[in-house]
Design a binder for these strands. Sequence first.
DNA 1: AAATAAGATTGATAAATGTCAAGTAAGTTA
DNA 2: TAACTTACTTGACATTTATCAATCTTATTT
Lengths: 231, 231
Amino acid sequence: MPLFVNAVFCQNCSKKQNLFQFLTDEETNYINEHRHEVKFNRGETIFKQGGALTHIACVTTGFAKVYIEGVNKKNLLLKILRPTEMLAGPGMFNDFRHYYSVNAISDVTACFIEVEAIMEVVKQNSVFSIEFIKWVNQRGIRYFEKLINLTQKQMPGRIADVLIYLSKEVYENDKFTVNISRQDIADLAAMSKESAIRVIKEFKVSKVIKCEGNDFEILDFPALQKVSQTG
Amino acid sequence: MPLFVNAVFCQNCSKKQNLFQFLTDEETNYINEHRHEVKFNRGETIFKQGGALTHIACVTTGFAKVYIEGVNKKNLLLKILRPTEMLAGPGMFNDFRHYYSVNAISDVTACFIEVEAIMEVVKQNSVFSIEFIKWVNQRGIRYFEKLINLTQKQMPGRIADVLIYLSKEVYENDKFTVNISRQDIADLAAMSKESAIRVIKEFKVSKVIKCEGNDFEILDFPALQKVSQTG
DNA sequence: AAATAAGATTGATAAATGTCAAGTAAGTTA
DNA sequence: TAACTTACTTGACATTTATCAATCTTATTT
């Protein structure tokens, strides 16, 4: 009996990336033959910056944080990955190394697909290749936003952005319980954890949010948006 | 006689992007039929953020600055474009809008190619599509570097990065004369122009660089690199 | 050449942010 | 339960950075 049992075939996988809907049955089978599923415990490293990029990954269950290991042991947290999101860093088609690290912030199941297989279907299927470029460019747009948010806004604006991001895109609820630390929140907003804590407290006393430990609730969304925009 | 005369055909163009070497003669001809050359005067806008992305552009002569128009009228300068560099922003294959503005900092000649034509060859030519993804990912790696440089380094480190960038990648010389303003340098380093001027002066008095007006010279490159790394 | 305008520089000051140290809370191990 | 570890929080303080105003330089116009 094999150590890893693939629960499903790509063909009828409910956790499939949108991207893969553009493949033919044959291509889907091909991908299926070049993938395997891995389970990670919370805290474990999924990708390590600098390591070889031999596979791309799709998170099927659980959450993970994607971060760049920068200077002076500081991390910049790029995003929180959710189920059905794909990991295919910019090292692809270049030096095939990881330009960020990925760490499970809950137990995680992920499908690993060999990059060679992805390259093969990019070559074969022109619709897929267009959609792949689209996906990469969408990510590029996000980096632009992050660049502006982090370099042109002051701390309250940056924390407002993080709270909006967590509420709207990660936990999809006004009320949410984070599975990331205060340090992670600080790394999302590119500031010290003490500063992050202080700004969060300010939002708390001004009744913009409610926050007890890891439980957050957005009370005044328009106010948050305003802070985000004014910087 | 037409208003714009195409000086050359893509086929034997000496200013051709590396990317286009992967096209067949037929595809090159196809691109040639869907391109036109435009001359810009210094200071003129080549692409405007928010505008429709109908063409990609290749700079054949002159320099241009690429910048995001951010919050509170602040700009973030992404890069200085040189001859033979290509402009194909992340709006491509998405909403087909420009996510940055591009402005000529000298007289500029540029080839404009219809995006539809590019999409067509991406679809037709799998080598080209791989190379195109490679190109987009290279840009992504640059954004990562920029994100780290701008969010995790203090002003001396950021200005050091800018000086290294200008010397090594833009003007390709230890000695160079910039055709950008102090404000532009500040926008490259995400700080106020006064701060940029002060840091440049510090480098000057500590004999790391020589600087008279727009004439720069790197005197102690290792020192610059050290400042860049320590942040 | 004088007048004007735009950009560059400097100094003084205020605001923003990080660091350090101490203390608290909460969870984990013995 | 107690000891211990880890993360979180707070306050005091130092450092970094931006802002504002004045001056200087350089280029452009008249």
